[in-house]
């Protein structure tokens, strides 16, 4: 049963690499933010799967905090792109 989780993590890793292509080619800043947001979501998913694979519950806590913090990051970048940040 353990191998299944590692296979899932491998697939998620491959998907993250594919998303990085969009992050690199752009062409505009919002496109890159979309790609970054996808990478964040996939990272959270792989953290959850890894916590089962390695039997470490604490990984899920890291995933929760990562999801919330990456959300704050996305909001800040979005505010900056929309020209709503003073200074």
């Amino acid at each position: 049963m353990t191998e299944v989780w590692f296979v899932a993590v491998a697939v998620l890793g491959a998907l993250i690499v594919l998303t990085l292509v969009r992050l690199l080619i752009g062409p505009t800043a919002p496109d890159r933010v979309v790609a970054l947001d996808t990478v964040n979501t996939l990272t959270v998913a792989s953290m959850i799967v890894l916590s089962v694979a390695y039997k470490q519950t604490v990984f899920v806590d890291v995933a929760i905090v990562y999801a919330l913090l990456s959300f704050v990051g996305t909001l800040y970048i979005a505010k900056y792109l929309g020209g709503e940040m003073s200074a």
């Binding site: 959850i48 999801a67 959300f71 979005a78 929309g82 020209g83």
Partner: peptide, 26 residues
Amino acid sequence: TFVALLALAFTNATGAHAIARAAHRS
């Protein structure tokens, strides 16, 4: 994991909204 799922579902939709709005404003 359930808590992580809730956090993800809410933040993803709101984040997408923020990006769309920022893209339109820019």
